[in-house]
Design a protein around this nucleic acid. Structure first.
Length: 507
RNA sequence: GCUCCGGUAGUGUAGUCCGGCCAAUCAUUUCGGCCUUUCGAGCCGAAGACUCGGGUUCAAAUCCCGGCCGGAGCACCA
């Protein structure tokens, strides 16, 4: 029997299978297509409605970029609507920053994720009130007057408080007292009834509204009863017709809580995906509030300081939106917490800007070098080594700047090449002197770059420090562009006053 | 304390649903070599992983049980 098996070739087996069950054969060959890009979603036949819902209490960070990119990418993939929704319903503890609303929209546009709809929760609070009332009428919520600590205790022990047994009429009346000011801040909350014996304490009767009398930066004191995230988000997702939600797994329990609300009101809950926390080696763990403190303390120059992990800082450094998109899409939507390195983003970015960036000379920590002999008065160097975009002409002569670190690696008698200019032989180190040694390009000579002594001052701001030096005059023509300082790295030229200021991108 | 969710090379990621084509994909990283008037790019090559222990099975990264490790929630924050 074994020999029979051996004699039968794979082709024969396939033939037989085709005869018996052709549908299985098709399955065999269709199975392993390597997944490209984002994993497929379910229930996408009619397109998708997805949102990114930040609290605008600071500018978008790289973490926000992930949310913006992935959500919008799914909408591009399946068709539908991409919504940006500002969940700005805490005027105090997570107080929104008025400028940040615009920053989000700017950064979305830059990331190639223009929203189809922009929603601001703080402007829609009166749409939530009737829903709360309906919920009370259906017996799904009650006004609870327990002190915070008392309720916490009840929750831990699974005790139902006396307020839970109030009639609908009582609850409606108390709810109106919350709204009209009869009840003071801290005296009552509206709670959604779940199950005080739910095995997960996190799910037990959760608060939906509380009283906050502080002024909100956008709508002032228009409302005194504010929804909490679980309610606001649940209701908005329904009102907006959200089909799929992607959110951090810190909000994983939110779904279980919100489903009670959906059940009371007869709504259908969207499909949910959770993803883990994202940390970046080069920035450590960052939070908007930490960053704000550091900026206020003057540790950073602002929200676009090149050392800060905000989208605007990244943009200022010459990282391309396309590189960020590719990277974030590649990350996918896993539930594991990940710790990524900027190196991958840099590598992605390098592929794009290597083509586009002109080459320029920048000498950091410059030291003068005197050269005797027939040094050409000017150098002709290509703007790009592989793509013909013309040449740059740099004044040269018998006195030039080179990097101190290059000088330190030289010995008297060394024959080296000044890039795109000529060869020289070192005759003295201190002071630095050399002698012209011909123009022929030799094989295997060490090549260093240089700068004219009358070149503009250049300052490069890097994530880990500042480099100052002298560059070629043509750098001033690159304002707003990404260039490569040869033997140094890619930078974006961000201002060209007396001193040229560049932000460092990566090598 | 109660509850939930994860664990594939240094870092990410594919494969896990529906066990066999997986001595495990791709990228990044690191190291070699070639090429190059940049320490950049390009080309070639190499390194490096299924958390552990049991079980089921002819066959386990994939299914089951347990351990270990990690993360999260239990706010009148988002």
């Amino acid at each position: 029997m074994l020999t029979d098996l051996e004699k039968t070739s794979i082709a024969q087996w396939q033939e037989r299978l085709a005869a018996i069950a052709p549908e299985l054969l098709a399955e065999l060959s269709e199975k392993k297509d390597p997944e490209k890009g984002l994993p497929a979603l379910e229930r996408t036949e009619n397109g998708v409605v997805m949102r990114f819902a930040p609290n605008p209490n600071g500018p978008p960070t790289l973490g926000s970029a992930r949310g913006i990119i992935v959500n919008s990418e799914y909408v591009k993939k399946y068709g539908g609507k991409f919504i940006i929704r500002f969940d700005d319903t805490d005027p105090v503890k997570k107080r929104p920053m008025p400028e940040a609303y615009g920053w989000y929209l700017e950064d979305c546009a830059w990331l190639g994720a223009k929203p189809d709809l922009i929603i601001t929760a703080s402007e829609r609070v009166d749409q939530y009130y009737p829903i709360a009332e309906e919920l009370i009428k259906r017996g799904g919520a009650y006004v609870c007057g327990c002190a915070q600590a008392t309720f916490k205790e009840h929750k831990d022990k699974g005790i139902e408080c006396e307020h839970r047994a109030q009639s609908v009429e009582q609850n409606l009346s108390l709810w109106r007292k919350m709204l009209d000011g009869t009840l003071a801040e801290g005296e009552a909350v509206l709670r959604v009834k779940t199950d005080m014996h739910h095995k997960d304490p996190a799910i037990r009767d959760w608060p939906a509204f509380r009283i906050v009398t502080a002024s909100h930066p956008l709508v002032g004191t228009k409302y005194r009863v504010w929804p909490l995230l679980d309610f606001e988000s649940a209701v908005e997702d329904h009102l907006l017709g959200t089909t799929h939600i992607i959110r951090g797994k810190d909000l994983a329990d939110s779904g279980s809580r919100q489903r009670y609300l959906y059940d009371y009101l007869g709504w259908q809950y969207p499909l949910v995906i959770h993803w883990g926390r994202i940390k970046i080696h080069q920035f450590g763990s960052f939070s908007t509030s930490k960053l704000r403190k550091a900026i206020e303390a003057g540790e950073y120059s602002g929200w676009d300081d090149p050392r800060v992990p905000t989208v605007r800082a990244i943009r200022g450094r010459g990282i391309q939106a396309e590189a960020l998109r590719k990277f974030m899409i590649e990350l996918g939507v896993g539930e594991t917490d990940i710790s990524i390195s900027m190196d991958s983003i840099y590598a992605e970015n390098r592929k794009i800007i290597d083509q586009e960036a002109n080459r320029r000379f920048f000498v950091w920590d410059p030291v003068a070098l005197e050269i005797e002999g027939d040094v050409p008065a000017r150098a002709h160097a290509p703007l790009h080594p592989a793509i013909d975009r013309g040449e740059r002409v740099i004044p040269a002569g018998n006195r030039l700047f080179i990097c101190r670190s290059d000088l330190a690696s030289l010995k008297i008698g060394d024959l080296i090449r000044l890039k795109d200019l000529c060869n020289i032989e070192i005759t003295s180190l201190e002071p630095a002197r050399a002698r012209f040694a011909g123009k022929d390009v030799g094989k295997r000579t060490k090549i260093i770059h240089w700068a004219p002594t009358d070149g503009p001052k250049v300052r490069v701001l890097k994530p880990d420090g500042i480099d100052e030096g002298v560059g070629e005059a043509g750098i001033a023509e690159e304002l707003g562009k990404v260039v490569q300082f040869e033997r140094y790295g890619f930078v974006q030229i961000n201002s060209v006053g007396e001193t040229i200021v560049a932000y460092f991108a990566h090598r």
